[in-house]
Computed example of a mutant assay.
Amino acid sequence: MKPHDPAPSLSRLAALREREVERRQTELAQQLADAERRRRNQERLDQLWRTSTTTGTLTPQLSLNCANYKQTVLELADRHRDDLSRQEQAVDQARLALLTATRRHGAIDQVLTLRLQEHDRVLRSAEQKRQDEIARQSWLRRGT
């Protein structure tokens, strides 16, 4: 904020919107990292149940144990798939929130920029008038 800010409340609002954008960026980054972690876990679980096969040389008890293990891993993978789906929805919501915050900040920033430009024009005009008046008075003094 400038010392003689013509729109202090608008400047504060722009700063708040900027912080909101930063916060939304952080949230999105966290959501993306969590989604990636869940994706890797899902891949590991899928790999586990694919590689857990039984051979014909196992005893019936061991075959049953392997089948139960595979079924448990499949159920866990299915639950993780549901969690991943919810996480991807959360990522989409975080992206939308970031987009909304960015648009809101951009709109406020644009209004603030226009106000500051107008304020600068008024200051330049006042300075030009002051300089013109000094020149006029100087010219009048020289003429007498």
Rank of each mutant, 00 (worst) to 15 (best):
A126C: 05
R50L: 08
N68I: 02
K70N: 07
D83F: 06
A67N: 07
R50F: 04
Q47F: 06
K70F: 02
T102L: 02
D92F: 04
A107S: 11
A15D: 13
E133V: 09
L58D: 08
A107V: 14
R40A: 13
C66P: 02
E118A: 14
D34I: 06
T100Q: 10
Q71D: 09
A97I: 00
D5L: 04
S138P: 01
Q117C: 05
R115D: 06
Q128N: 12
Q131I: 05
V91W: 01
V73E: 02
Q128E: 13
G106M: 05
E133K: 14
V73K: 02
L10H: 06
L32I: 03
R50V: 04
S11P: 03
L64Q: 15
D120Q: 15
T102D: 09
L116C: 05
Q137K: 15
C66R: 10
Q25G: 12
A15E: 13
R141D: 14
E36K: 10
A14Q: 07
R40T: 09
A126Q: 14
L16V: 05
Q31Y: 03
R95H: 07
R24Y: 01
P8D: 01
A67L: 09
R124S: 08
L45Y: 06
D34H: 13
A35E: 06
Y69T: 09
A101D: 01
E27D: 11
R23E: 14
V73M: 03
T72M: 12
Q131W: 10
A35V: 06
T26M: 11
T100Y: 01
A35R: 08
L13S: 08
Q30P: 00
Q117P: 00
N65E: 13
A15V: 04
V111C: 07
T53I: 10
E88C: 04
A67F: 10
R142W: 15
S138H: 14
L96G: 05
R38W: 07
W139C: 13
T72C: 02
Q89R: 12
G56M: 03
T72S: 10
R136H: 10
R23P: 01
R136C: 04
L64H: 11
E18N: 11
A135K: 15
L58S: 06
A77R: 12
R50Q: 13
T113F: 09
L116E: 08
S125W: 13
E22R: 14
H119D: 15
R50H: 09
T54E: 11
Y69M: 09
D83P: 00
S125Q: 15
A14Y: 03
T72D: 10
D92P: 01
V21T: 08
L28V: 03
R141T: 12
L10C: 04
L28P: 03
W49V: 08
T72H: 08
E75T: 11
V91T: 02
L96I: 03
A97P: 00
V73R: 02
T26W: 07
V91N: 00
T59H: 04
V91R: 01
D132M: 15
R86C: 04
C66K: 14
L74P: 01
P3W: 03
R124P: 00
R39G: 10
L98A: 03
M1E: 07
T53S: 07
E118G: 10
L13N: 07
R142P: 03
Q110N: 12
N41M: 12
D132Y: 09
E88T: 04
V111R: 13
R124I: 01
Q47N: 12
R86A: 08
T102F: 06
